Simulated assay, not measured.
Amino acid sequence: MSVELVEVVRSGFRECVHRGSLIVLDPQGEVVVSLGEVHTPIYPRSSNKPLQA
Rank of each mutant, 00 (worst) to 15 (best):
G12E: 05
L51R: 14
E30F: 05
P50R: 12
Q28E: 09
S34N: 05
S2E: 13
H39I: 05
P50K: 12
V33L: 07
H39F: 13
V33Q: 08
K49Y: 15
L25Y: 09
V38D: 05
R45T: 10
L51E: 13
S21V: 02
G29V: 08
E37V: 04
E15P: 01
Q52F: 12
S47N: 14
Q28V: 04
R10D: 12
R14F: 02
P27I: 03
V31L: 04
V8A: 03
E4H: 08
V38E: 04
H39L: 15
Q52H: 14
V38N: 09
G29N: 07
Q28A: 10
V31C: 01
P44F: 11
I42L: 09
E37A: 13
I42Y: 12
S47A: 15
P27G: 06
N48W: 15
P44A: 12
V38Y: 03
L51A: 13
P41I: 08
Y43W: 08
K49L: 15
V17Q: 02
A53G: 14
V9Y: 08
S21Y: 00
I42A: 13
G36R: 06
V38K: 05
P44S: 11
R45W: 04
E15W: 03
S46V: 06
S21N: 09
V3P: 00
L35N: 04
P50W: 14
V3N: 07
V6E: 12
N48P: 04
T40Q: 15
R45G: 10
R45Y: 09
E30V: 01
L35A: 10
V9E: 13
A53R: 15
D26V: 06
V6N: 06
H39N: 15
V32F: 00
V24G: 01
P27C: 01
V6F: 14
T40V: 14
G20W: 02
R45V: 09
H18V: 09
V17G: 04
E7W: 02
D26S: 01
L51M: 14
S46Q: 10
P41K: 11
R45D: 13
Y43Q: 11
I23T: 00
V32D: 00
V17R: 00
M1Q: 12
E4S: 12
V3A: 12
E30I: 00
S34R: 10
E37D: 15
R19C: 03
G29R: 08
S2T: 13
E37G: 05
V3T: 12
S34Y: 01
I23K: 00
R19E: 07
R10G: 03
S47Y: 15
E7I: 06
Y43F: 10
L22W: 04
R10K: 13
E7G: 04
S2H: 07
E7T: 12
S11N: 12
P27H: 04
E7L: 06
V38Q: 07
V33F: 05
L25S: 02
R19N: 03
R10V: 13
S46M: 10
S21A: 08
E4M: 08
V6C: 05
Q52P: 05
V33W: 06
C16M: 01
E4G: 10
V33H: 06
N48Y: 14
L5Y: 04
C16F: 00
V24S: 02
V9G: 00
V31E: 09
L5T: 05
N48F: 15
T40P: 02
G36F: 07
G29W: 07
H39R: 15
E15V: 06
R19G: 00
G36V: 05
P27T: 08
